[in-house]
Simulated scan of single mutants.
Amino acid sequence: MSARPRRTTLSTIAASAGVSVATVSKVLNGRSDVAPATRSLVRSLLEQHDYVPSSARRTGDTTIEIQVDGMCAYAAGIVGGTVEAGADSGVSVAIAIKKGPAGGGTAWARDLVSAGRQAVITIAEHPTPAQLAILSRARLPVVVIDPLDLSDTSVSSVGPTNFTGGLIATRHLLALGHSRIAYLGGLATALSSQARLHGYRAAMEDAGVPVLPDYVRTPGFCYAHGVEGAGVLLDLRPAPTAIFAASDECAVGAIHAAKARGLRVPEDLSIVGFDDSEIASMTSPKLTTMHQPLREMGIVALRTALRLAAGERIESAHVELATELVIRESSLTA
């Protein structure tokens, strides 16, 4: 039987750098009383040895970090639920704006552990296998909200019923008498977008209404994607009379693209979004949309992260929360 590889210790790093363990500890903790050249050498050795401190050695208050790309209305709803659940549980929630893909390898995991995090929650972005290995070695659990991929069942995740939401949204437009219904938004590679698109296609197929190839556009979830994608759709002949957008931001972009062409919403074009974020009731007309339980998703993610940090077993790797249609002013009978 081969021996288990020895874990790199602070003593190993200190010996390689020719400094004391205390000096290495100061570098790890971000102390300023270390010479720049020594700090650079120690950091280089930490990277070389792939060193990540064990989260089990940390003491003090429990802190969970939630990472977001930016504080849009969608993210704000989730973060609000996470912070609320943290306050109820006596847990601190740190909010971090990501500057690129989730994390940065060993340094990312080490920084999380050194900062005293007990778990990390990330929105949509799935850590790479290498990052997951680092987090596992550091005993730092991760929970993904509305993941782009569900194939890795070792990662806990929380999301909405995307397929059902797409199905209900499209059935609403069909019930209003629309048949030229387009699907707009979401990345083609994003699991949530794929599921919403499949729901849209299923509703159209059940109603015996063909889906024209040009009526499906998946540029992304943002406002600019809605403006651009809806512009292409509305310039088609025949143009759609209704659009199901994969996000509220995308739907608002579609509203503005329609108005720029002299079209009235909902008289000339009905639009349904997905999220029910704050902007859904702030736009004109107010947006008919699929309510995605953003606050509840944040709460479930926080509670899941705490259970994982405590070493508890999670019954289901992925938890789905129900979506429901909220009818406002942007959809009308054809």
Rank of each mutant, 00 (worst) to 15 (best):
T164H: 11
F221S: 06
T164D: 13
G231E: 13
I181T: 07
T189H: 01
E228S: 03
I181A: 02
S156I: 12
V155Q: 04
A230C: 06
I243N: 05
H178E: 15
H198T: 08
Q194N: 13
T164E: 14
L187V: 05
G177A: 02
S193H: 04
P240N: 12
E205T: 04
I181Q: 01
G199C: 01
L234K: 10
A245S: 06
A182D: 07
A207C: 11
R217W: 12
T164C: 04
Y200V: 00
A207T: 08
L167H: 14
H172K: 05
G159T: 11
T164V: 08
C222M: 05
L212R: 15
R171Y: 02
V232D: 05
A203P: 05
Y183M: 13
A246E: 00
Y215E: 06
T161P: 00
N162F: 01
A239N: 12
T189L: 05
D214A: 13
A242I: 15
D152L: 00
A203Q: 10
V155L: 09
Q194L: 13
C222G: 10
L173C: 04
A195C: 11
M204T: 02
L197M: 13
R180E: 15
F163T: 09
L184D: 07
A224P: 11
L236Y: 08
H172Y: 08
G185C: 07
V232Q: 14
H225C: 15
S193Y: 11
A246H: 05
T153Y: 02
L191G: 10
A230Q: 05
L233E: 09
S179V: 11
A207F: 11
A230K: 04
P160F: 03
R217Y: 12
R237G: 09
A242S: 13
A202F: 10
G185V: 13
T161E: 15
V158Q: 08
V232A: 12
G166C: 06
S156D: 03
L234A: 10
G229Y: 06
L174H: 02
G165F: 01
D206K: 01
G220I: 09
H178P: 07
G208P: 03
G226M: 07
L184I: 12
L187I: 09
Y223V: 03
A188L: 10
R171H: 05
R196L: 01
L167E: 08
P240Q: 10
T189I: 07
H172S: 02
I243E: 01
P160M: 09
S157G: 11
A202P: 00
P238M: 03
E228F: 00
D206A: 14
R196P: 00
G231R: 10
L191S: 15
P219W: 06
V216N: 02
P238G: 06
R180F: 03
C222F: 12
G229F: 10
G185R: 11
L234F: 02
E205G: 01
Y200L: 07
G166L: 11
E228W: 09
F163H: 13
L176W: 01
E205L: 09
A239K: 10
G226R: 13
L234T: 14
L173R: 00
A175C: 00
F244E: 07
L184H: 08
P213H: 05
T170L: 08
L176M: 03
R217F: 15
V216P: 11
S179D: 15
G199P: 00
H198C: 05
S193V: 02
I168V: 12
V211K: 02
I168P: 00
Y223P: 12
P160D: 09
I243S: 04
E205D: 12
A175V: 06
A207K: 00
I243A: 07
